[in-house]
């Protein structure tokens, strides 16, 4: 493990209010494939070039995700 801090820039991220929701998204193969490292109970790193696909699936599942630059 690095001994100095690392700055990660331009990283796509998903954040949920309720950690259970993120558990559910990791358990669902449709969304799991776009979720990579889980940084905390409520924050996950999104796979490269996948935000639009993930957003589409979430909308299809009835979620209304907030998308921010």
């Amino acid at each position: 493990m690095a001994t100095e801090p690392i700055l990660h820039e331009n990283l796509p991220l998903l954040e949920v209010l309720d950690p259970i929701l993120l558990d559910t998204l990791y358990a669902d193969p449709h969304t799991e494939m776009y979720l990579l490292t889980r940084l905390s109970e409520s924050v996950a790193v999104i796979a490269p070039d996948s935000i639009a696909k993930l957003e589409k699936i979430l909308l299809k599942q009835g979620h209304t995700p907030k998308v921010v630059e």
């Binding site: 493990m1 690095a2 001994t3 100095e4 801090p5 690392i6 700055l7 990660h8 820039e9 331009n10 990283l11 796509p12 991220l13 998903l14 954040e15 949920v16 209010l17 309720d18 929701l21 940084l39 999104i46 935000i51 993930l54 957003e55 979430l58 979620h63 209304t64 995700p65 907030k66 998308v67 921010v68 630059e69």
Partner: peptide
Amino acid sequence: LREQITLKHRIKLLEFP
């Protein structure tokens, strides 16, 4: 409900040892 999930395109994250 829209606040439940947020997708962020480009964030800056600092990782510590």
